[in-house]
Computed example of a mutant assay.
Amino acid sequence: MADDPPLVLDVDGTLTRPEGWGLDPRVFDPLCGWDAPVVIATGKAFPYPVALCHFVGIPELAVAENGGVVYAGDEVRVVGDREGARAVVEEYRAAGYDLGWGPEDTVNRWRETEVAVSRDSPEEPLREIAAAHGLEVVDTGYAYHVKDPAPNKGDGVELVADRVGFDPADAVAVGDSINDVSTFAVVGRSFAVSNADDAAREAADETLTEAHADGTLSVLERVRATSE
């Protein structure tokens, strides 16, 4: 049997249950048995993909915070600067708005390069304030991410590939959101799950008929079958 291809997988909307929240445990076994690098590329804070790798039982290869933090098993590379995002949040709060996560805010507690705002919070004033600070707001479908425009998942994937030693052109990616577009641009094959937004659908080589983890599992079965 030929080697499995390297994988680049988003988390929310891609490895989640059909209803959209919580990891689907069915993805654990195929990923644990994958004989090529598996890169978890997510908008979540760095501890989340690291923990996922631990629980699945695969090497820690993570692109977190939409490319702001990258880890390939050697050193943690912090690519973005959170000071600008913090300034946006201070101004947003001063205008009377809230991030929407409650007083403990575990969504942002461990973030190093960006700030995530609940989609229940007003979007337009957030975008206006961010633009005034030279930052962008990325709507992933799960949160508004206030970030430096420069870091992205695709660049993070290329950095991991260089450190680990695989060609991104050999990799297969699955995602669901605009923040996966840069990943799709650097890999050899890309798939958008059926619940993906328009940007991801347009950028992917193929849009699947299945949603969430069902779609990802169908890709794993397909690319493993064709590698045999």
Rank of each mutant, 00 (worst) to 15 (best):
P6F: 11
P6W: 13
L7M: 15
V8L: 11
V8H: 08
L9D: 10
L9I: 11
T14M: 11
T14C: 12
R17H: 00
G20Y: 00
W21Y: 08
L23H: 05
P25M: 04
P25Y: 03
R26N: 13
D29W: 08
C32F: 14
A36K: 03
A36M: 05
P37S: 11
V39C: 14
I40M: 14
G43K: 07
A45D: 09
A45Q: 15
A45S: 15
F46M: 10
F46G: 12
F46L: 13
P47Q: 06
V50N: 12
L52I: 13
C53S: 15
C53I: 04
V56H: 11
I58F: 03
I58R: 08
I58Y: 03
E60I: 12
A64T: 07
G67A: 08
V70I: 09
D74S: 15
V78N: 08
V78Y: 02
D81E: 11
R82C: 01
E83V: 08
G84E: 02
G84K: 02
V89M: 13
E90G: 10
E91A: 10
Y92L: 01
A95Y: 00
Y97M: 05
D98A: 11
D98T: 13
W101G: 09
D105G: 08
R109G: 00
R111T: 03
E112I: 01
V115Q: 10
A116V: 00
S118I: 07
S118Y: 05
S118C: 08
R119G: 12
P122A: 12
E123H: 05
E124R: 15
I129S: 02
A130R: 03
G134F: 00
G134V: 02
G134W: 01
L135P: 07
E136Q: 13
E136S: 13
D139K: 04
A143W: 00
Y144P: 01
Y144C: 03
H145P: 06
A150P: 01
D155K: 06
D155E: 15
V157C: 12
E158K: 15
L159C: 00
L159K: 01
D162C: 01
R163V: 12
R163N: 06
V164G: 09
F166W: 12
P168S: 09
D170Y: 02
A171W: 04
V172R: 15
A173W: 03
A173Q: 07
D176A: 09
D176G: 04
S182A: 10
F184W: 04
A185I: 10
G188Y: 05
F191S: 14
A192P: 02
N195H: 07
A196E: 07
D197G: 14
D197M: 13
A200G: 15
R201L: 04
A203F: 00
A204E: 09
A204Q: 09
A204N: 11
T207R: 13
T209K: 10
E210N: 02
E210W: 01
A213R: 07
D214W: 00
L217T: 07
L220T: 14
L220K: 13
L220E: 13
V223D: 14
V223C: 14
R224H: 15
T226N: 02
T226D: 12
